[in-house]
Design a protein around this nucleic acid. Structure first.
Length: 318
RNA sequence: GGCGCUAUAGCCAAGUGGUAAGGCGUGGGUCUGCAACACCCUGAUUCCCCGGUUCAAAUCCGGGUGGCGCCU
């Protein structure tokens, strides 16, 4: 069936909503394998802090796209999409159902909406160029770079505020690298028709406080399970890559330096995680394809599995 | 029991007669090769209560209540 699209079950949702457990349960239900869509679980070394499923938790269900890059390695959406697509095709080829489970909205949407990253050789990202532009921004201020951007690409300048230096630098980077306006580049790479037959499930809670309570509690459990020691090891290895953005790791640095109490840092982790969850919900909410399941509507896990099965059946991906 | 200080948004807090700064949290949003990133927007018709002075009071005066401190 060369023209048949690959069925793909997607489980999205904020951190600590129970995506991992649900993914494993549904994988067992349908004979599936899990493909993680998490920008931090990609990296080796941060296991507890990124809530990677343990060997015991996976119950034999194969998990992919976890711990595949070194801590200091560069890894981007484009890498993710390329590798995840291969994995999904492979899983499907073996007659199993690929289940995409994760909370990184950019990764999920780039993958399922078929954002074009094929121009890797010509575009990519250039570390030294990016560094130079970032330094310029720091030296001259964001406004100066924003003005420069406004001259070459007014459209993008209008949508990116002068304060958002990271986005301005990227737009300028594209310009210097390819001579393309960022707005044109964006249009050229825009999402195309999906490669997959999708069934999307989104996890949420009617009562936000329930989610936040779970997050707060989980941070404590992570700490008990050795998160601090794990992050200290990363700290002592002077991790410099994207992995340094991981919530948990960066909030503990003041503690390692002796500038803050552990409990204060754990509170910062809780706060960071809550805000992250909110941003995730903002991202996923705009995707009209998601079938939202409000976890606090159900009494137990079996009921949740049942409603998921109904959702899958209705989607006709199976 | 007496004396002093104090009361402003969920929290911290500026304001000392001219029509309620700011920070944090919260809520909403943006997002195309760093995304667990970066960034934007977001609350007080009213300042503990009652009365008074004044054209005008969160600001001054009197009383009450709560908190903090000291004294007996």
């Amino acid at each position: 069936m060369p023209n048949e699209k690959i069925p793909l079950l997607v489980i999205a949702g904020p951190t600590a909503s129970g995506k991992t457990a649900l993914g494993i349960a549904l994988a067992k239900e349908y004979g599936g394998e899990v493909v993680s869509a998490d920008s931090m679980q990609i990296y080796k070394g941060l296991d507890i802090a990124t809530a990677k499923p343990t060997a015991g938790e996976t119950e034999g269900v194969p998990h992919h796209m976890i711990s595949i890059a070194d801590m200091d390695a560069e890894f981007s959406v484009a890498d993710y999409v390329r590798l995840a697509k291969e994995k999904i095709a492979d899983i499907h080829g073996r007659g199993k159902l690929p289940i995409l489970v994760g909370g990184t909205g950019l990764y999920i949407n780039s993958l399922i909406d078929n954002v074009n990253f094929d121009n890797a050789d010509t575009v990519g990202n250039d570390g030294s160029l990016r560094k130079r532009l970032s330094e310029e921004a720091e030296r001259l201020g964001g406004e100066v770079l924003h003005k420069r951007l406004a001259e070459i690409d007014p459209k993008t300048a209008e949508s990116v505020p002068p304060q958002n230096v990271v986005r301005i630098v990227r737009a300028l980077e594209i310009w210097e690298l390819t001579g393309m306006k960022f707005s044109d580049y964006k249009r050229a790479n825009a999402g195309r028709v999906s490669d997959y037959r999708l069934c999307m499930i989104g996890l949420n809670f009617r009562d936000r406080d329930v989610l936040y309570g779970r997050i707060n509690k989980r941070v404590g459990i992570m700490a008990e399970n050795g998160m601090v020691e794990e992050c200290r090891a990363v700290y002592e290895n002077e991790c410099l890559g994207t992995a340094c953005q991981a919530i948990g790791y960066k909030e503990l640095i003041p503690y390692f330096k002796g500038d803050a109490d552990l409990e204060d840092c754990l509170d910062k982790i809780r706060l960071g995680s809550r805000r992250y969850a909110k941003r995730q919900l903002t991202w996923f909410r705009r995707d009209y394809r998601i079938n939202w399941i409000y976890l606090d509507d159900f009494n137990n896990f079996d009921e949740i599995i049942e409603i998921c099965k109904k959702t899958v059946a209705k989607s006709e991906i199976m």
